[in-house]
């Protein structure tokens, strides 16, 4: 099967608020798909409708060719879900927790212990769930989602509480999962994460999908300017103005001299000719700029 998820014209209202407002997208089998958007954009609501946890007011969801709502037991074994707020059995240790989930899915406890190792919680195996740190609990929750080797994985802000090291580790894990041909859908607030992991991203705001494409394409299509900085003091204002010409914009804040340009090659060549490359930094547009451009707001964590 080619299409893992097919969503058409999904809508969900809570009172006056349109939490999800006409969302459509498709996720292909084996694809790594990201949903981005500011707080309250409707990411979690969309995801939970697709998973079959919430009933849409209108619209169609096809999940592995089936309807997830009302409860579809056939799907249970094939999808793995990490919810935005972790859900655990009270007063069980990390290992007992994971083993219980493993047993629910008919998976061996050896596999559960292996998963515990994969998310780096072996030394916390005997720690009760209430005593785990936020990031540890989140890693356990991800392990619970992956323990039965699902072909389609949903992760709602999986790296939200993780330290940089754990985040990198999780990226590696998710890449491995995805390279095995599994489909991964995640939401995130980290643009670097989306750029690094996702084949395609959907940017949402106010319940609507603003755009869907690969991160690279989105950035390219933005036709955003490139920022080129060198240390201040190597070029006089006149020299800088000469390098910039009519096309580029120059700014000197006393530390850095920054050119904002759509023709970086020309500026860099000119700077090289003058041997003024001290402290050179080149920053191209990122997904962050795309996000900013589309939603009109800074990303808020």
């Amino acid at each position: 099967m080619d299409v893992a998820i097919k969503v058409a014209d999904l809508a969900k209202r809570y009172g006056d608020l349109a939490a999800v407002d006409g969302v459509s997208f498709e996720v292909k089998t084996g694809e790594f798909f990201g949903i981005l958007g500011p707080n309250g954009a409707g990411k979690t609501t969309t995801l939970e409708i697709v998973e079959g946890l919430r009933e849409p007011d209108s619209g169609e969801v096809g999940l592995l060719g089936m309807r997830p709502w009302p409860r579809n037991p056939e799907l249970a074994m094939r999808i793995g879900v990490q919810l935005q707020s972790s859900a655990f059995f009270d007063r069980l240790t990390a290992r007992e927790q994971l083993r219980t989930f493993a047993e629910l899915y008919g998976v061996s406890s050896a596999r559960a212990d292996e998963m515990l190792e994969v998310v780096g919680l072996t030394d916390k195996a005997r720690t009760r769930i209430e005593k785990l740190s936020g990031g540890q609990a989140q890693r356990l929750s991800i392990a619970c989602a992956l323990v039965h080797d699902p072909e389609l994985v949903f992760l709602d802000e999986p790296t939200a509480a993780l330290d940089p090291q754990a985040r990198r580790n999780l990226w590696d894990l998710l890449r491995r999962v995805n390279s095995d041909g599994r489909t991964v859908v995640l939401t995130t607030h980290h643009m670097d994460e989306a750029e690094s992991l996702c084949d395609r991203v959907a940017i949402m705001d106010s319940g609507r999908v603003l755009t869907i494409d690969s991160p690279a394409k989105l950035v390219r299509d933005l036709h955003a300017a490139t920022h080129i900085s060198i240390s201040s003091g190597f070029l006089t204002v006149e020299q800088a103005a000469g390098v910039a010409g009519a096309e580029a914009h120059v700014e000197d804040d006393g530390l850095d001299l920054t050119f904002t340009t759509h023709d970086p090659a020309r500026i860099l060549t000119a700077l090289a000719e003058r041997s003024a490359l001290d402290g050179l930094r080149v920053r191209g547009a990122t997904l962050e700029d795309v996000f900013l451009e589309l939603t009109g707001r800074e990303y808020r964590a």
Binding site: G52, R71, A76, L83, L104
Partner: peptide, 12 residues
């Protein structure tokens, strides 16, 4: 604690 919704997604 949302555990029931998590279980709803499991083969239970």
């Amino acid at each position: 604690k949302k555990l029931l919704r998590r279980l709803r997604l499991a083969p239970v």
